[in-house]
């Protein structure tokens, strides 16, 4: 039962990922990517990582919502009403991707993986929470600093009338 569910979810995840770059409409591409992420998150749920699976699904759905807004803002053809190709070097990218897949899949299947050590805790989420608040706290503190730096960097980059906002001569006189 679990294997069947995994195979179905894996096929859905990969099909969604492929559909992202096949469909004409960027709105459909966003939905396809969301489907792929949800399927991947559900596959993670199959290995008893409930927290990670749920957080992956929730995060990705929110990200796809934000991405849809950016598409409507920035892309010239978000609805796919004018079929157009926005790809370059398709053949080269395809060859590189297939080679990388064969290498990774061959490595995954051909590597003599070590034996499983231990069994999962009765509540993996509780174990993760205790690790974060205990021995792994430094990791999460570092992550929090990186996230704060990301907020500041994103604001500096994206804000209007800022350091990187186009040519200095294009700014108002009082801003020069």
């Amino acid at each position: 039962m679990r294997v069947t569910a995994f195979v179905l979810l894996a096929l859905l995840a990969v099909a969604g990922g492929v559909a992202v770059f096949v469909v004409n409409s960027m709105a459909r591409a966003t939905i396809a990517l969301a489907v792929s992420f949800v399927a991947a998150g559900a596959a993670i749920l199959l290995v008893d990582a409930a927290y990670l699976g749920v957080i992956t699904i929730l995060m990705m759905l929110m990200e796809m919502g934000i991405m849809a807004i950016f598409m409507i803002m920035f892309m010239m053809n978000p609805g796919g009403l004018m079929p157009m190709s926005m790809m370059h070097n398709k053949r080269g990218a395809l060859v590189v991707s297939i080679v990388v897949f064969l290498l990774l899949a061959g490595g995954a299947l051909g590597t003599p993986w070590p034996q499983r050590r231990g069994t999962p805790p009765s509540d993996p989420t509780l174990a993760l929470g205790e690790a974060i608040m205990g021995g792994k706290m430094l990791v999460m503190m570092t992550v929090s600093a990186v996230l704060f730096a990301t907020i500041v960097s994103a604001m500096v980059l994206a804000t209007g009338r800022g350091r990187y906002d186009g040519e200095p001569s294009a700014r108002p006189a009082d801003d020069a």
Binding site: A93, I98, F101, L104
Partner: peptide, 17 residues
């Protein structure tokens, strides 16, 4: 890991093309 490889290769194709 095969699923991960497939997702990685699909994303790589998109990022390159």
């Amino acid at each position: 890991l095969v699923l991960a490889a497939a997702l990685f290769a699909t994303g790589l194709f998109g990022a390159l093309s």
